[in-house]
């Protein structure tokens, strides 16, 4: 009796389970998994997205080795990531620490920090184009006030990448601060009270009691920021278009140019596969570190 009922139940479960996941599986399959495999295949083709594709074996990967623009793009992406990630992390942490108190007007300060989070990358780019305008920009206006010479920013090949870092740090610090603030507010109150009783000042409490509690959040944010830094595109498209003199050509911008300006979709797919491998590695390293952390925390 019971087993017959259970069997009927389980057959019904197979059917209803699949019916419920079918739309999601089909859509994610069609727009996630199929293109992933296809992209891999395309990286072995010469393909301009118009005329029939031609199989060229490892030619695209071979070409990557001797491509000076790619080497420059990789270097720019690396420099950008190495600057952007720690600056955003530390900035977010300090800002969250400052925002984590109950004083009058705190909601206005929080608002000022959080609004850039919802400001689009395009708007950010357009606004900074004007802020950093070499002739009439506010940035050079302020530099002049303190007696410093005007700078070229996005128009100077030696500065453009650093201006990009500054702009995107502004765009991301709110998100980091928001995540850190949520985590700080969940640090147990009695821990803080105990520290205060022991005569620990607010700054020492912050660095020695609260910050160590934030390790899992820091691990998450670091990975998130690295992945986003490696995929930098929107802001470059809106401000420098990779220039001047390729100074801000980063990997994804180069991929975009190869695919949609030069119509080298095969080569662009090989670049995409390279990006994929790097991002999977970053993710796996983070998962590994998180697990190691959890285990050492449990022991």
């Amino acid at each position: 009796m019971i087993t017959a009922w259970a069997r009927r139940r389980s057959t019904a479960d197979h059917v209803s389970g699949w019916m419920l996941v079918a739309p999601s599986v089909l859509l994610i399959g069609l727009f996630g998994l199929v293109p992933l495999v296809w992209s891999f295949a395309m990286s072995f083709q010469r393909n301009d997205l118009q005329t029939p594709a031609e199989w060229v074996g490892l030619h695209n990967y071979d070409q990557m080795l001797g491509d000076p623009v790619l080497v420059a793009a990789l270097r720019h992406t690396l420099i950008y990531t190495v600057l952007f990630v720690p600056l955003t992390l530390v900035g977010s942490l300090v800002v969250a620490g400052a925002l984590n108190r109950n004083i009058r007007g705190i909601s206005i300060y929080r608002l000022a920090v959080f609004v850039p989070v919802i400001t689009s990358t395009v708007a950010t780019g357009v606004i900074f184009n004007f802020l950093l305008d070499p002739e009439y920009g506010l940035a050079n206006g302020l530099l002049e006030k303190v007696g410093l010479p005007a700078q070229g920013f996005f128009s100077d090949p030696d500065q453009a990448l650093y201006a990009m870092v500054a702009m995107t740090v502004w765009g991301w610090i709110g998100f980091g601060a928001l995540i850190y603030l949520a985590a700080l507010q969940s640090v147990p109150k009695d821990l803080l009270e105990a520290a205060a009783l022991d005569g620990c000042g607010p700054v020492r409490t912050f660095w020695q009691i609260q910050v160590p509690q934030l390790r899992p959040v820091t691990a998450f944010l670091t990975t998130w920021l690295i992945i986003n830094a490696l995929q930098l595109f929107d802001e470059v498209y809106v401000t420098t278009k990779g220039g001047p003199l390729h100074a801000t050509t980063v990997v994804v911008y180069y991929l975009y140019q190869q695919a949609f300006q030069y119509f080298h979709a095969g080569y662009a797919s090989a670049l995409a596969c390279l990006l994929f491998v790097v991002i999977v590695l970053v993710t796996l390293i983070q998962m590994r570190l998180t697990r190691a952390n959890d285990e050492s925390g449990a022991a």
């Binding site: 293109p35 992933l36 395309m42 695919a259 979709a265």
Partner: peptide, 20 residues
């Protein structure tokens, strides 16, 4: 499999998606 697609950056699937 579905979760694994979280790791796939959009730029990787973008060209075939356009063809689709």
């Amino acid at each position: 499999l579905l979760l694994a697609t979280l790791m796939v950056p959009f730029q990787v699937v973008m060209i075939p998606s356009l063809v689709i």
